[in-house]
Design a protein around this nucleic acid. Sequence first.
DNA 1: GCTATCTAATTGCATATGCAAATAGCAAGC
DNA 2: GCTTGCTATTTGCATATGCAATTAGATAGC
Lengths: 249, 249
Amino acid sequence: MSDNGLDAVKLDGAGPVYDQIRRAIRDLVLNGAWPPGTSVPPEHALMERLGASRMTVHRALVQLAREGLITRRRRSGTVVASPPASHAMLDILSIPDEVRRLGQDYSFEILSRRDGKPAPEVAALFELKRAAPVIHLVTRHLSGGQPHVLEERVIHLATVPGAADESFETVPPGDWLLQHSLWSQAEHALSAVAAGPREAELLGIGRGEPCLLVERRTWNQESPVTAVRLLYPGGRHRFVGRFGPYGRV
Amino acid sequence: MSDNGLDAVKLDGAGPVYDQIRRAIRDLVLNGAWPPGTSVPPEHALMERLGASRMTVHRALVQLAREGLITRRRRSGTVVASPPASHAMLDILSIPDEVRRLGQDYSFEILSRRDGKPAPEVAALFELKRAAPVIHLVTRHLSGGQPHVLEERVIHLATVPGAADESFETVPPGDWLLQHSLWSQAEHALSAVAAGPREAELLGIGRGEPCLLVERRTWNQESPVTAVRLLYPGGRHRFVGRFGPYGRV
DNA sequence: GCTATCTAATTGCATATGCAAATAGCAAGC
DNA sequence: GCTTGCTATTTGCATATGCAATTAGATAGC
């Protein structure tokens, strides 16, 4: 490919041209065909390749830049941006980072690992029709030596085959996935639950004490990637977000 | 004002023209000078008034439309949009709407009301230096006759003077505020807590049962508007949100 | 080798122009 | 009154053009 990916950009003829261009490039980014750091062809090249005027190409690129998918600099050109590590409140976040931001030492331990077909209730989490092979992990994260959060995670091996060969001894599963998998959509649910006996013991709190439960499921283009339940001791954690009437600020 | 607000649009000379126009109109909307429903002058009028080309005016308006501040239709023109009632997950929402969306009958009752200087811990909520006059309300919201959520709210009278004359008998405080006040910034915090004796009784749950606590503080340009604590019985409620790696979807 | 300078590539912005698409409101016809 | 069709208004989109700002990389000078 001497063209630096130029001819991967294809229009589909649906809707305004600037939007076709925008979607074409967006898809290349989200599919991983153009990973972060890839340089996007300059406006003139796209203009010739696509037979559109520079202003039309420009419009598409400006919009993508505002959406955060690419960054642009005069003379240097346009490159695919790295996804922000964490938006305000509920984004995919790295627990080690979360802990260190609070100024604490971080460590973690894998409490259990099971490879194979998931239990029925685990399959249900993913809304899987058939029991597909997964890795089932329970991890405890520690902050300054104290239990911070309990993580129960299922990794869908069909989508992330590399996970089978990973021991998760040095990198916790969530962080490993952030580096080794792509995701295009996630769903969060937040609720309050009482700690069960085993959970209470692992978190060093009393039975029945309130905990904040974060459940997150992640997909990449229809394929499930991972599902995780994070159980935070209630008293010690809060999630905070800020916004204005028309959206985030 | 025969000009329909046209000459309220003023440029400040800072940065690109299209962005000056965008900010000028945005500020008129956010300040309440152009409330929802107000019609924005057509592109030709702005173009003449501001001495910019139509494409430049167009660019500003298109961007505002994408941000959700205005809606545009061919021939009908451009009007200021109503702020969305509820974004995905944690936005200012109307509890009656929330309940009705679940298909339940809604009702509410004011359990207590106290006007005057706030208690110290209430003033602290707002980060107020001095004890300013407030209304302190405790409300219980019911869904199909069952307790749905307990609301404790403080309304800052200096910012929302009209609240003093409102009985909140027909419209719950949160909804009344949505209609009678403006806000430019809000902060949420989510945590899990155990129900206290009085709270448990009011919510019809057992003492110490887990509850989801949503704390929200709202400002309008530096002035506090209201602070509220919403206590949801844990088992019965979850908050859900969906997004992609670069933001909401 | 190091630094100052120049050049050219690339994006940013604004204008002028023309046509297309949607549609509110009016007019005509029944 | 009701429907049908017309027309003018307003936004949507694309092009062509020109200049400004930034700066990576080459070049020249020391």
